[in-house]
Simulated assay, not measured.
Amino acid sequence: MRELILIGIGTGNPDHLTLQGATAIRTADLILVPRKGADKADLADLRRAICARVLGGDDARIVEFDLPKRDSESDYLAGVEAWHDAIARAWGAAAGPAAERVALLIWGDPSLYDSSLRIAARLSPPPKVSVVPGITALQALCAAHGIPLNEIGAPFLVTTGRRLRDEGWPDCAGTLVVMLDGSCAFQTLDPTGVTIWWGAYLGMAEEVTVSGPMAEVGPKIVEMRAEARARHGWIMDIYLMRRATEG
């Protein structure tokens, strides 16, 4: 592998793919598509559909591989390190010795809460790594609700459900975006004066969104999230919370 191209493909809508991304797909020798189990087969199908649109049905360059699973029983950081090592090995094995320019289609953008760049750094020998930016879940959420990300001249913070649960709302921002939250960590907060905008499967046909005062819509989000995950076998969601400005 001489070059690895990480292509941001947005949040599930094939129209999110940029012209730069389409060019990268067309010029790659090989396109790796991860399989994440039967419950998430539609994620691989969507990657294949994007490639089919660009390549006109020519799928000879597409190679699927089984994505290793993370050990959730061990220490979190140690488990992630071992998982990333395993994924890097899977990439190398799937690419094989012949392909020089290998592409991976990355949900959202490779720069935001995605470990593809860190995994790529583990490849040996190290290839040249190129990144094609994509639409993030954060952008798709704000677009779906028709809201600005930040208030005038004010900062915002992007964090994870784990950190929100363990550390609470940071004092440095009145607007908080939460990703990778499998347990609706917003339930640990005092909902007084907080508005929440939530979305799942953003950009996909299954897209669902809810917004309103957290005290009112929080329980509804928990219920809808559980139902959607049970129906599809997986869920990708994100939410933005904003505290009312005092005075």
Rank of each mutant, 00 (worst) to 15 (best):
M204C: 08
A22N: 03
T195L: 11
L43P: 06
A103L: 04
A49G: 14
T11D: 01
D237G: 05
A22Q: 13
L157S: 13
D45K: 09
S130N: 14
I119E: 03
L149N: 03
I25Q: 00
I31A: 03
G199I: 02
V102D: 01
G37M: 10
G218P: 07
M224D: 13
L77S: 10
P126D: 08
A22M: 13
T195P: 01
D166Y: 01
I238F: 08
D66N: 15
P97Q: 10
G56L: 11
R89Q: 12
A90N: 04
T245V: 12
D85F: 00
M1T: 02
E81D: 13
L55K: 01
A185Q: 01
C184H: 10
V33T: 09
D45Q: 15
S124Y: 04
V132M: 02
L164I: 03
G212Q: 05
R47I: 02
D29E: 08
W198E: 06
I135R: 05
A173I: 05
G174A: 15
A137D: 04
A99C: 05
L46E: 09
Q139V: 06
V217N: 03
V178A: 08
G10S: 04
C142I: 01
A82L: 13
A215K: 13
R118Q: 10
H16L: 07
I5A: 06
I87T: 05
A205M: 12
P213I: 04
R118I: 02
R101Y: 05
F186R: 00
W197G: 00
P97Y: 01
I87M: 12
G174S: 15
I31E: 03
E151G: 10
